[in-house]
Simulated assay, not measured.
Amino acid sequence: MAPRAYWKGTLKLSLVSCPVVLYPATTAAEKTRFHMINRETGNRLKQQMIDAETGDVVEGDQKGRGYELRKGKYVEIEPEELEAVQVESNHTIDIESFVPSDEIDQRYLNHPYYIAPDGKAAIDAFAVIRDAMKDQERVALAKIVLTNREHVMAIEPLGKGLLGTTLRYPYELRDEDQFFDDIKSPKITKDMVELAGHILHSKAAHFDPSEFKDEYENALKALVKRKASGKKIELPEPEERPSNVVSLMDALNQSLKGRGGWRKSARSHPRRTTSRHRSTRKTHRSTARHRKAG
Rank of each mutant, 00 (worst) to 15 (best):
R4E: 05
A5T: 08
S14Y: 09
L15M: 04
S17Y: 10
S17E: 14
C18T: 13
Y23M: 15
A28W: 06
F34A: 08
N38E: 12
T41M: 07
R44Q: 03
K46V: 07
Q48S: 05
D51C: 05
A52G: 02
T54D: 06
V58G: 06
V58L: 04
E59N: 08
K63W: 00
K63V: 02
G64Y: 07
G64A: 12
G64L: 12
Y67P: 03
E68H: 00
K73L: 15
K73P: 04
E76Q: 14
L82K: 02
V85P: 00
E88A: 08
S89L: 01
F98A: 07
F98S: 07
V99R: 04
P100G: 07
E103L: 12
D105V: 04
R107E: 09
Y108W: 06
L109Y: 10
N110G: 05
P112L: 06
D118V: 08
K120C: 06
K120S: 08
V128M: 11
R130P: 00
D131E: 11
M133D: 10
K134M: 10
K134T: 14
T147Q: 15
T147M: 13
H151L: 00
M153W: 01
A154I: 01
E156R: 08
G159L: 00
T165M: 04
Y169N: 09
Y169M: 11
P170D: 04
E176N: 15
Q178E: 14
F179I: 06
D182F: 06
D182N: 12
P186T: 02
K187T: 14
D191K: 12
D191G: 09
E194C: 12
H198K: 13
I199W: 02
H201R: 13
H206G: 14
P209D: 04
N218Q: 05
A219M: 04
L220D: 08
L223W: 00
A228V: 04
S229Y: 00
G230T: 03
I233Q: 02
P238S: 01
R241K: 15
P242W: 02
P242K: 11
V245A: 13
S247H: 05
A251S: 07
S255A: 10
S255Y: 05
G261V: 04
G261S: 11
W262D: 01
H269C: 06
T273V: 12
T274Q: 15
T274K: 15
T280E: 12
H284S: 08
S286K: 12
S286T: 10
R289N: 08
R291T: 11
A293E: 07
G294F: 09
